[in-house]
C-alpha cells in the first residue's frame, strides 16, 4: 500500500542500478575483447592477407578510432544484438544464442521448479521437526546434493531410468524421429510443440527433459531446503510466533502464514541466485545429456578461441544474472514492508 510516488522512486532507483551494472558488465566484456591476444582483424581476413587488405579491414572494424569511441560503437552493436559472427558455427552469434539459450532456459526452469517445490516444504519440515527424523533426512539429502558429483548422478540416472527401466528419454532434447518436426517459435521445444498441437512431440521432449532437470533440481533442492531450514528456524524462535500461538492460531497457520511469510524475502534472493546459477548453463549436465544449451556453447567457443561467441554468451549470462538480482530485490521489497 506504499504510495505511487515512493513506488515510482523505488522503480527508478532499481532501473538506475540495473543500467549502471549493465554498463560495467559491457565495459568488462569490451575490454576483454581488446586485451586478449587474438587479433580480431586476422579473424576476419585470415593470416595470409596482404597489408593493405589488413589495413582496410582494420578501418572497417573501427579499430583505428579511440578506445572510448570504439566502446560507444560496441554499446550500439550490443543494443542491436550484433555480437559478430561465430567462427565455429559461421552463424551470427545472436542466432546461435537464440538457439541454445531456450534449451538451457527450459532445463533451468524445470530444475528450479523441482528444487523450489520440494526444497521449501522439506526445509520447512526440517525446521519444524528440528533434531528429529525429518530434519535428519533433509540434512542427509542436502549432504548428498552437495557432495555427489553431477556427472556421476547424471550417468547413474541415465543408466537406471533410461537404459534399464526405459521410463525417460535418453540424451538430447528430443528423439531422432521427432527431430525438426516443429517449427521454432519460442525455442522452448515443449512450448513450440504444444503451440502446434504436436502432443506426441511435446511428450517426447518432456521425457528427455525430465531427467537432466531432475538432476539439476536435486542440487537446487539441496541448497534451497538448507536455506529454508535455517531461515525458518530463525523465524520460529521469534516472539511474534508466540503471539500467533497465544491468539489460538493453528500450527499450520503459525508455520505457513506467519513464519514462512517472514522467511519469504531472503528466500526470494536464494531462489533467484540458484536459478541464475542454472541459467548460466551447467556444462557437465549439458555434456552428459547431450543438451545443446548455453553452457556447452560457451565452453566449446572458448576452447575454439571463438571470441565473438564467448563475449556474446557472457553478455547474455550477465544480463540474466543482473535481471534476476533485480527481480529478487523487488520480491524482497514486496515480501518485507521494512525494506520499502
Amino acid at each position: 500500500m506504499a504510495s505511487a510516488r515512493s513506488t515510482a522512486k523505488l522503480v527508478s532507483a532499481e532501473v538506475t542500478t540495473f543500467a549502471i551494472t549493465m554498463l560495467g558488465l559491457l565495459l568488462v566484456t569490451f575490454l576483454i575483447g581488446r586485451v586478449i591476444p587474438i587479433d580480431p582483424v586476422l579473424a576476419v581476413v585470415g593470416d595470409r592477407a596482404p597489408p593493405d587488405v589488413y589495413d582496410k579491414a582494420r578501418i572497417a572494424l573501427g579499430l583505428d578510432k579511440p578506445l572510448w569511441q570504439q566502446f560507444l560503437t560496441y554499446l550500439g552493436q550490443v543494443a542491436r544484438g550484433e555480437f559478430g559472427t561465430s567462427v565455429m558455427t559461421s552463424n551470427p552469434v545472436i542466432l546461435d544464442i537464440k538457439r541454445v539459450f531456450p534449451a538451457t532456459l527450459e532445463l533451468a526452469t524445470l530444475g528450479t521448479l523441482i528444487g523450489v517445490s520440494l526444497g521449501i516444504p522439506l526445509g520447512v519440515a526440517a525446521a519444524v521437526y528440528k533434531g528429529r527424523w525429518p530434519d535428519n533426512l533433509v540434512r542427509i539429502l542436502g549432504l548428498f546434493g552437495y557432495s555427489i558429483p553431477v556427472f556421476w548422478l547424471g550417468l547413474m540416472g541415465l543408466l537406471l531410468f533410461y537404459a534399464h527401466l526405459g521410463w525417460v528419454g535418453g540424451p538430447g532434447r528430443v528423439s531422432v524421429a521427432f527431430d525438426d518436426l516443429v517449427t521454432t517459435k519460442t525455442g522452448v521445444l515443449i512450448l513450440d510443440a504444444i503451440l502446434e498441437g504436436e502432443w506426441e512431440v511435446a511428450r517426447d521432449a518432456f521425457s528427455h527433459l525430465i531427467l537432466p532437470a531432475s538432476v539439476l533440481g536435486f542440487f537446487s533442492l539441496a541448497y534451497i531446503s538448507r536455506m529454508t531450514r535455517s531461515f525458518m528456524i530463525n523465524e520460529l524462535s521469534q516472539a511474534y510466533i508466540l503471539t500467533a500461538r497465544v491468539k489460538g492460531a493453528s500450527e499450520t497457520r503459525v508455520i505457513w502464514r506467519h513464519a514462512l511469510r517472514n522467511a519469504a524475502a531472503p528466500l526470494a534472493t536464494v531462489i533467484a541466485l540458484s536459478y541464475a546459477g542454472l541459467l548460466e548453463g551447467s556444462v557437465l549436465t549439458e555434456t552428459i545429456f547431450a543438451w545443446p544449451g548455453l553452457g556447452r556453447y560457451i565452453t566449446a567457443s572458448l576452447l575454439q578461441a571463438d571470441m565473438n561467441a564467448v563475449l556474446g554468451g557472457t553478455v547474455v549470462v550477465g544480463v540474466v544474472f543482473i535481471s534476476l538480482n533485480l527481480f529478487a530485490d523487488i520480491m524482497a521489497r514486496v515480501f518485507d514492508p521494512r525494506t520499502r
Binding site: 500500500m1 521469534q238 516472539a239 511474534y240 508466540l242 503471539t243 500467533a244 500461538r245 497465544v246 491468539k247 489460538g248 492460531a249 493453528s250 506467519h258 511469510r261 517472514n262 519469504a264 515480501f335 518485507d336 514492508p337 521494512r338
Partner: peptide
C-alpha cells in the same frame, strides 16, 4: 488452542518483537 485467544489470552512484553513485522 480453541480456548486460547478466545477465552484466555496474553499481552506480550515488547511490541517491537511480538508483532509480526510483515502483517499490518
Amino acid at each position: 488452542r480453541a480456548l486460547r485467544g478466545a477465552r484466555m489470552s496474553m499481552v506480550m512484553q515488547d511490541p517491537k518483537y511480538s508483532l509480526n513485522p510483515v502483517m499490518t
